[in-house]
């Protein structure tokens, strides 16, 4: 492939939206209220829309007759590049919100930088996505505040979720080789420069939500290199079921 670094870079971005979209889609019809149900489905819908833009572009770069669906659904576990954070399960609504919040703050800052990409397609996609993601960030931040400040029970649940998910936050700022190459070309975003502000923003909000900022400095990574938690395999078996069972068909 002529432009392998860009291709891999796109997968890295898109897989986050793909896997998180899949997780949010699981909740459809099962939300704690009709309004939150609609909001979660809406976030899922936005993320899959973004996925399509990225993978259509990736398919064009690959130039080997693969479609957006082949790229989304026909890779093996180790070829998915999403961060570990987004594949974590919907243990309860606090985990769903915590995962969304910890990702959204990053996602929004990332897209703001991606808009400046010298690759015009990428910058156009970022420009479209950022409007959606700023809504996601507002939604998840508001809910962290509600659950943190709400009742003793909700505060405890939200705190547990943040404590458990915290270990996956540092990976957001880890650079792969494709990332570095793309940063050097002015196409990609240097995620390392987003880190300080990310934690500042997250910590402020947690404090506002009367939650404690976890002190743990032990972090997990590996997703960007395709080494995932055990949760991803099950998510992929759902995602890939139709394409694997009925190969080479149109739907």
């Amino acid at each position: 492939m002529k432009n392998e670094n860009l291709y891999n870079y796109l997968l890295g971005i898109a897989d986050n939206s793909l896997v998180l979209g899949q997780r949010m889609g699981e909740l459809c019809g099962h939300g704690p209220s009709l309004e939150t149900d609609i909001a979660c489905t809406n976030i899922s819908l936005d993320l899959f829309g973004q996925v399509r833009s990225y993978f259509q572009y990736a398919a064009k770069i690959a130039g080997d007759n693969r479609t957006e669906d082949d790229i989304a659904m026909l890779r093996k576990e180790r070829e998915y590049k999403n961060v570990l954070l987004v594949e974590q399960p919907n243990t309860n609504f606090a985990y769903t919100i915590g995962r969304q919040f910890l990702f959204d703050v990053y996602h929004l800052a990332f897209l703001a930088e991606l808009q400046k990409s010298t690759d015009l397609t990428l910058s156009a996609i970022a420009n479209k996505c950022i409007k959606e993601v700023s809504y996601h960030e507002r939604f998840s931040s508001d809910w962290v505040k509600r659950l943190g400040d709400g009742t003793k029970e909700s505060n405890q649940k939200m705190q547990d979720a943040i404590n458990d998910l915290w270990t996956y936050t540092d990976e957001l700022f880890h650079q792969t080789d494709a990332d570095k190459a793309m940063v050097a070309e002015g196409i990609g975003v240097d995620v390392t420069i987003l880190k300080e502000n990310y934690y500042k923003q997250v910590n402020n909000l947690l404090e506002e939500a009367t939650l404690e900022v976890p002190e743990s400095k032990w972090f997990q990574k590996g997703g960007k290199e395709g080494i995932h938690t055990e949760h991803l395999g099950y998510l992929l078996s759902d995602l890939q079921y139709m394409q694997r069972t009925y190969p080479n068909m149109e739907w």
């Binding site: 899949q22 459809c28 019809g29 489905t41 899922s44 899959f48 996925v51 009925y246």
Partner: peptide, 23 residues
């Protein structure tokens, strides 16, 4: 069937449809 829709296009359409129903 949302998590198992056969293509991204169908998944997005199904999500939108179920969301309409919630609406």
């Amino acid at each position: 069937w949302i998590t198992r829709a056969p293509s991204l296009r169908r998944k997005v359409a199904l999500l939108a449809k179920v969301q309409d129903e919630a609406g």
